[in-house]
């Protein structure tokens, strides 16, 4: 696949990639944009090599997840180790995107809050399956876990999300 093809594919998947990057960065927009740029650079410079073992989308999501993890680790190190030496006060971690939070409907805000309460893995699997319309197998490839583990996370995540959202749904019915 040539670089021009990669460019086109990245552009086609940009919106979905941004959604995944947002999720990986805990809905911090600035951070998600940086992660996405770094991931695109990796793809175009050939640092991340696509071998065709999975779909391009699955592979790209894997690259984004890895990049976000690296960035998180780097930030943590900077804050924990170097922050003490070079700065009197460590730089605050950017909060979640206030614009998106304000513009979201009540229902989506409730869903965001519920997802934030889930364990990370369960939330990731649910996001990949429901938000990105991937199969559980593809989600397991993105997260580099076995299919069985992904299924377990999926079922547990659904049950937990149902429990969290059930009282709210009851209130909606009453209204």
């Amino acid at each position: 696949m040539t670089q021009i093809d990669f460019h086109g594919e990245l552009e086609r998947l940009h919106a979905a990639s941004f959604g995944w990057a947002l999720w990986c960065c805990n809905h911090r927009r600035e951070e998600a944009e940086e992660v996405l740029q770094a991931a695109y650079l990796k793809v175009l410079e050939g640092t991340a090599c696509f071998k065709g073992n999975s779909s391009l989308r699955t592979w790209l999501f894997g690259v984004i997840r890895r990049t976000a993890w690296e960035q998180n680790r780097r930030r943590w190190l900077r804050l924990q180790v170097l922050g003490r030496w070079f700065t009197s006060q460590p730089a605050p971690i950017p909060s979640r995107d206030p614009e998106a939070a304000a513009s979201g409907s009540e229902e989506t805000s409730a869903l965001r809050a519920a997802l934030a309460d889930l364990p990370a893995r369960q939330g990731q699997v649910l996001h990949l399956v429901f938000y990105q319309d991937l199969t559980i197998q593809e989600a397991s490839q993105v997260l580099r876990i076995s299919l069985g583990t992904a299924r377990t996370h999926f079922e547990r995540g659904k049950a937990r999300l149902r429990n969290i959202l059930a009282p709210q749904r009851g209130n909606d019915d009453v209204r």
Partner: peptide, 30 residues
């Protein structure tokens, strides 16, 4: 769940930045 997540996706897509490969000013290689 699918309908809720779809709504979430539409909201996120509405606020997604334009596709731009040139690194932003001030963005450096991590």
């Amino acid at each position: 769940f699918r309908s809720r997540f779809a709504q979430l996706r539409r909201e996120d897509e509405a606020h997604a930045p334009a596709f731009n490969l040139s690194p932003r000013r001030g963005t450096r290689r991590p």
